[in-house]
Design a protein around this nucleic acid. Structure first.
Length: 422
DNA sequence: TCTGGGGTCCTAGGACCC
DNA sequence: TCTGGGGTCCTAGGACCC
């Protein structure tokens, strides 16, 4: 059936220091005399409303030991004259889209992996067959010439290896990592740099005497399982480049959950305040649910206390719904059942058990009621889309000092994980 | 630690059924 | 009830990614 010499070629395109690059390129384009990329700088949140972490850093900032997710406070300790640039998510979405448009010129099979990462399937694309690495260089330079920011491109025969290759040396580089290069390019890497080896896993691996990816790749199965269970086996598979999967089509992935959470600028101590915030998060989450034409049957809330202890509570509804009021009723009950009165730092709402079925399981009366609610919700969604998300809101919010619809990601894209395609 | 917000997957324990 | 075991679903918590 298949053409016998068809070669799978997958590329991973990753924007270098994405948020910082994008903000810097945008500033330069608008006449800013200095390029933040050439000096110690970060994109960060605002510590005044307790969003004070590093979202992206320049390469000079990295040389001061500043890491993503550091507190801005600690970043300033490491480099007192650090330039701090505020985040501009609208700009970032635009840059992400612009990048997608370039990629789509060369292959129809483009998949968004996160706001600053894409997989592109070049299998069977003629211009790319004979010299994929050369083509990747051309692509990288085209992106820089047209959009003004650099990317890393990883080239391989599956997504996992392409992604790992893209993470090798940065910035503005192309690396290949084909199966036959695993032992020479991947195995010498320190184990700390392997995808999926995080803060908690690293000490466990080092305690087992694992220092490089190669050490992990050839470890005895029963040994790794005894320490890390299934997770250990997955890591061994990654170390051998054995998890992959082609890119199916666009970025249509099955969404498993939708949610929004917010760290509040102050500690919340009253139920009224908490419910107000939960309502605004529910509004946003339900709007996104409806935008995807999905229904949810499980509602969950998260509470992070002032001491950073976390708690989650969930309930499954008797039938799936996309109605804000119905879902908020559940949210309110979950909060009542789980809040013990301690000061709250963060609140979150998440919907799972998603389906795209209609309102089956309902009798005629309930169906008509649900239909009415559905129309009302749709109308509100349209108004918010056209006139802004706070153009229409519940009476409780007037003069409350709270935002009626809270939470990010108004875009319709899902960000899948590699493991989904295991 | 002056410590964000969007997700996915895994695990362990309990409820319930046969 | 001095009661076995397998399957499935639900819940809470935790690890990881960007």
């Amino acid at each position: 059936m298949e053409c016998e010499n068809k070669q799978n070629i997958i590329m991973h395109v990753d924007v270098n220091s994405a948020f910082l690059s994008w903000s810097a390129a945008h500033a330069v384009e608008n006449g800013c005399k200095i390029d933040y990329r050439t000096m110690p700088s970060i994109v960060g949140g605002n510590p005044r409303n307790r969003h004070g972490i590093v979202l992206a850093k320049s390469i000079p900032a990295k040389r001061y030991g500043i890491k993503t997710a550091d507190t801005i406070y600690s970043a300033l300790q490491k480099c007192p004259n650090l330039k701090i640039v505020p985040a501009d998510y609208q700009l970032y979405m635009q840059c992400s889209e612009a990048l997608r448009q370039i990629l789509k010129r060369y292959s129809p099979r483009v998949e968004r992996f996160s706001i600053d990462e894409y997989f592109v399937d070049f299998s069977g694309v003629n211009s790319c067959q004979t010299d994929p690495v050369g083509f990747a260089h051309y692509l990288k330079d085209t992106i820089y010439r047209e959009l003004g920011f650099t990317v890393n491109i990883g080239v391989s025969s599956n997504k996992l290896l392409a992604k790992i290759a893209g993470d090798f040396e940065k910035p503005n580089k192309v690396h290949s990592l084909f199966k036959h290069e695993i032992t020479t390019k991947l195995w010498p890497m320190p184990i700390a740099d392997l995808y999926m080896v995080g803060r908690k896993t690293l000490p466990k691996l080092t305690a087992m005497g694992i220092e490089t990816v190669g050490d992990l790749a050839i470890i005895d199965q029963t040994l790794i399982t005894s320490q890390l269970k299934k997770y250990g086996l997955m890591l061994v598979a990654i170390a051998n480049g054995e998890i992959g999967g082609a890119i199916s089509g666009g970025d249509k992935q099955v969404v498993k959950s939708i949610g929004n959470a917010t760290t509040i600028a102050f500690d919340v101590t009253t139920k009224d305040e908490a419910l107000m915030i939960l309502l605004s998060l529910t509004e946003m989450t339900c709007m996104r649910l409806r935008a995807k034409s999905l229904l949810a049957s499980t509602v969950a809330i998260t509470i992070k206390s002032a001491d950073f202890s976390k708690l989650s509570h969930q309930m499954t509804l008797s039938s799936a719904t996309d109605d804000t009021s119905t879902i908020f009723k559940a949210v309110r009950q979950l909060f009542d059942d789980s809040w013990d009165g301690t000061a709250v730092r963060l609140l979150g709402v998440r919907l799972t058990n998603l389906s795209n079925g209609q309102y089956y399981q309902l009798n005629l009366f309930d169906y008509q009621y649900a239909e009415k609610r559905h129309q009302l919700n749709k109308t509100i969604d349209h108004l918010r889309q056209r006139y802004g998300k706070n153009s229409i809101f519940r009476a409780t919010f007037s003069h409350s000092g709270f935002t009626p619809v809270k939470g990010g990601t108004a875009d319709n894209d899902s960000f899948p994980t590699l493991k989904t395609q295991l």
